[in-house]
């Protein structure tokens, strides 16, 4: 388990979280490379299915990162995203998964440090939880998604 490197998908809104990620880069603030960003115009675009499918395809953790609450470029897309994340958490709980594999995070475009620290924190949390329940260790130590 020690060398387990989780695969993490981050759905980031263009206006805040994606910009914050760029900011983290431009300030050279390191964070775990496990996090892979998929850009969306607003977290309100992130459908529960997108999150579920990410797990289905092999993600160990997924988070949705949008603007600070009350600060959404599109008024309330981020609060809608929050509810959808909660919906997925409920699904995961029902399936006997850890609900913390999915999270909603809010940040502003200027919060490069925060982007990095959350990426680190989330990655550590997922490491604690271990590989996604659909992954099985092969003898050579590599994980593969059964699909």
């Amino acid at each position: 388990m020690e060398n387990f490197e989780p695969e993490i998908v981050a759905f980031c809104c263009h206006y805040c979280a994606y910009t914050a990620a760029d900011m983290a880069g431009s300030k050279r603030i390191a964070y775990p490379p496990n996090v892979k960003i998929i850009r969306v115009p607003c977290t309100g675009k992130v459908d529960a299915i997108h999150i579920m499918k990410a797990f289905e395809k092999g993600a160990d953790g997924v988070y949705v990162a949008g603007c600070l609450e009350g600060d959404c470029h599109f008024k309330n897309g981020n609060t809608r995203a929050k509810y959808r994340v909660e919906q997925v958490q409920k699904y995961l709980t029902d399936l006997g998964w850890e609900k913390d594999r999915v999270a909603m995070i809010n940040m502003s475009a200027g919060m490069g440090e925060f982007f990095a620290s959350t990426a680190l924190e989330f990655t550590q949390n997922i490491k604690q939880l271990g590989p996604s329940p659909i992954k099985h260790f092969n003898t050579d130590g590599h994980q593969t998604a059964v699909s």
Partner: peptide
């Protein structure tokens, strides 16, 4: 975004950055 969100952020981990 290979630079701002990869090589800049992971310059200390070239192997992981390549992956």
């Amino acid at each position: 975004n290979l630079r701002d969100q990869n090589t800049w952020a992971h310059m200390g981990q070239p192997k992981e950055a390549l992956d």
